[in-house]
Amino acid sequence: MNDAAVIAKDGEEHGARRLRFEIFRFNPCDPDSRPHYDTFELDDAPGMTLFIALNLIREQQDPGLQFDFVCRAGICGSCAMLINGRPTLACRTLTGTLPDTVRLSPLPVFELIGDLSVNTGKWMRQMSERLRTWVDVAEDVDLDSLETPMDPDAAQAIYELERCIECGCCVAGCGTAVMRESFVGAVGLNKMARFRLDPRDTREDADFFELIGTDEGIFGCMSLLGCDDVCPKDLPLQTQLAYLRRKMAKVTLTG
C-alpha cells in the first residue's frame, strides 16, 4: 500500500471529518468545456496533504482531473495553486490545516493548461530570457586548476536567494502582476538581486538597471508585498525589492 492509501485508510478507520473540495474545471482544448467549479467530497485523515487528496479524487472520482505534481516534497514548485484564494504549494498543505470547504483554483496570470494546471514553465523561461538570469561569465575557466576562492558567507547569502523554486506564487499573489502581464514579478527581481550579489557575475548596477530599471521591473512594483507573504520558501522578498529599488534609484541619480 502506498503512502496515500495508508493515510486514506487510516482516515476511514478513524471516522474523520468530511472535506468538501470545490475545484475549478476547464479544458481549453475541449470546445464544449466552460469554466466552472466541480464539488468532490473526501474523508480527511491525519497526515493527508492536498497531493494525497487530489490523487484520491482522481483515482476514485474523476480520472480526468488535471493538476501538476512532480516532487510532492515542496521543492520543485510544480503544484502551486490558489487554495481558498491564496497561492501556495498544494503538496505540502496538510488538509488538517484547512476548513471543511476548500476551494482550489489555478494560479492567475499564467496560461491555463487545464483545471488546476498552468504553464508556469513558459512564463519563467520568458522571464529568464528577458532578465538574463544567469551568471554572465565572459569566458571559460581552466577546469584543471583550483577554483577561485569565495567568501563562505557570500556563498551562503547567494544560496539564501537562490532557494527560489519558480513556483509562481509570488506572481499570482502580486496585485501588479495580476493587472499587468509584462511585470517581471518578485521571482525575476529576486533573481536579479541574487546575481547582483554574486562576485562571479560581471554585470554592474548600470547593466542591471537596463534589465529592471523599468515600469515592468522594479519601478513597476507597488509594494503590495503579496509576494513576501505567500512565498513558500520564505525568501526575504520585501527586503530584496527595497534594496534593489534603492540601488537602481542610485543609478538614476548618479548615472
Binding site: 492567475p108 499573489g173 496585485g175 495580476v178 493587472m179 509594494s223 503590495l224 508585498l225 503579496g226 507573504d229
Partner: peptide
C-alpha cells in the same frame, strides 16, 4: 482583475 485578486487574497497590504 485587481478587484477579483483583492477579494480572493484576503491580504492586508493588497
Amino acid at each position: 482583475d485587481f478587484l477579483a485578486h483583492r477579494r480572493r487574497m484576503h491580504h492586508t497590504d493588497t
